[in-house]
């Protein structure tokens, strides 16, 4: 599904989606194709659902989003992690 279709099918809703296809331009990440996994009652519910699904299947690109956003464009940052000692 394209983001514009998700917006027209689920206006003013919090969604948990899986990113199926994306593109990149500089620091920006664009979602080109997606699956809607869940419609949530508020931002907290969407975040918690994202969190649970992400922890269960970290290899899948799952995110929370509100259909208020006209364009699904996110800033992307690199995260190389923390090294702990003992």
């Amino acid at each position: 599904m394209k983001w514009k279709d998700a917006r027209s099918n689920y206006p003013d809703e919090w969604l948990v989606i899986e990113v199926l296809e994306s593109s990149q331009a500089g620091k920006w990440f664009f979602v080109e194709d997606l699956d809607v996994l869940e419609i949530c009652k508020d931002g907290r519910a969407a975040f918690e659902s994202y969190r649970r699904r992400h922890n269960e299947a970290p290899q899948r690109d799952i995110m929370f989003v509100h259909t208020h956003q006209p364009e699904l464009r996110l800033e992307e940052r690199r995260w190389v992690g923390i090294r702990t000692g003992v």
């Binding site: 969407a46 995110m63 989003v65 992307e76």
Partner: peptide
């Protein structure tokens, strides 16, 4: 909690996203 207008950021790293 997340609000509709909050910018969402993606962090990409060694452990996934």
């Amino acid at each position: 909690q997340p609000e509709p207008g909050d910018p969402i950021r993606k962090l990409r790293g060694v452990g996934g996203v």
